[in-house]
């Protein structure tokens, strides 16, 4: 329990640090968003309009510390600023409508990839030098060596353009309005197939080979040989004794992968014009949409931190040695 409290305090502290860096960095850059907006309108704005814009974007000439307090207050109360691209839509609603798509698509495909990859890793390590063990690693490594966006292009070309089996872009059919109905759900799943398969295929081998190698090391460990000697049946030996220990390093990699869910599939989302946070970030950067860029970065940082916290919680469940904080009893 003390360990978890410790991790929780660490989460809060790092979130605060992320927020602060996010506040400081843009203020170190020359110029301000209102100036850019002013340039966009090519002198058609009056000075009073600039004042109004500055106020809207939260830029003022108050002392830094006051700005900082206002900024943190704004974050906590949901006032994250207004997007330029979708002016005057608040950044929070832009993120609110794109984040679920990314979490759903990338999050789910990552989790499926982890589960399938780990299971395959256990299997091929257990039947080491068997048929699967000689085919799978090479095949999947070949897939992983191709960049995700290229695999995405190929899938779009073959299954979207040539065969027309799957839609080539967007998250659901243009003919439908987003509502929790069965046709919409079907359309969403249908549209998620190609981008999902791309992410799944290009990350699978890492999980499988990682687990295979951990598992092979563990199978040589004394406690596995000892358990085999004492007559533990094969299935229990494979899971409770070998895989249960071999999976621990996987959990740590999983933390890193979960953190990358929000940021990691920008290219795939871009290829499929998938309305996720990665696609939104690309749009924001092209349009110099500072409030949106800043908030997206904040969301990415928060995602990494939350994922790490979740994995810390998971590790406590899985490894009794972590519970005592590693110091022994």
């Amino acid at each position: 329990m003390r360990y978890l409290l410790n991790r929780f305090l660490f989460l809060i502290l790092s979130l605060w640090a992320a927020v602060t860096i996010n506040f400081v960095l843009p203020r170190m850059m020359p110029g301000n968003p209102a100036g850019i907006m002013f340039a966009k309108f090519q002198g058609k704005l009056t000075p009073s309009a600039i004042k109004a814009l500055e106020a809207a974007f939260g830029f003022n000439h108050k002392p830094m510390i006051v700005q900082y307090v206002d900024y943190v207050k704004g974050l906590l109360t949901g006032h994250w600023g207004l997007s330029f691209t979708y002016f005057p839509t608040p950044v929070t609603s832009v993120i609110g409508s794109s984040l679920p798509w990314t979490l759903g698509l990338v999050g789910l495909s990552t989790i499926i990839s982890v589960i399938v990859g780990t299971a395959l890793g256990i299997l091929i390590a257990w039947r080491r030098a068997g048929l699967l063990d000689s085919i799978l690693p090479t095949t999947l490594m070949f897939l992983q060596s191709m960049p995700a966006f290229w695999v995405a292009f190929m899938l779009v070309y073959i299954f979207g353009f040539m065969l027309s089996w799957f839609p080539m872009s967007h998250a659901y059919s243009d003919m439908l309005t987003l509502a929790p109905t069965i046709p919409v759900a079907f359309s969403v799943l249908y549209h998620a197939v190609l981008p999902g398969v791309t992410i799944f295929l290009t990350s699978l081998s890492g999980w499988m080979i990682g687990m295979r190698n951990n598992m092979i090391n563990t199978l040589g460990d004394d406690y596995v040989v000892f358990a085999e000697a004492k007559g533990v049946p094969a299935k229990r030996l494979m899971f409770t004794y070998a895989a249960r220990n071999a999976i621990l390093p996987q959990v740590t990699s999983f933390a890193i992968a979960l953190g990358n869910v929000v940021s990691g599939s920008i290219l795939v989302e871009d290829v499929f014009s998938y309305p996720g946070i990665g696609y939104q970030l690309v749009t924001a950067v092209t349009n110099e949409d500072y409030p949106l860029i800043q908030s997206t970065f904040l969301i990415i940082a928060a995602a990494v931190l939350f994922a790490n916290f979740l994995v810390d919680v998971l590790l406590v469940r899985l490894d009794p040695r972590v519970r005592t904080g590693g110091a022994g009893a």
């Binding site: 406690y223 000892f226 358990a227 004794y241 249960r244 220990n245 490894d319 040695r321």
Partner: peptide, 8 residues
């Protein structure tokens, strides 16, 4: 020392 499974 290492003959026991550390997680059970």
């Amino acid at each position: 020392m290492s003959a026991l499974n550390p997680v059970i």
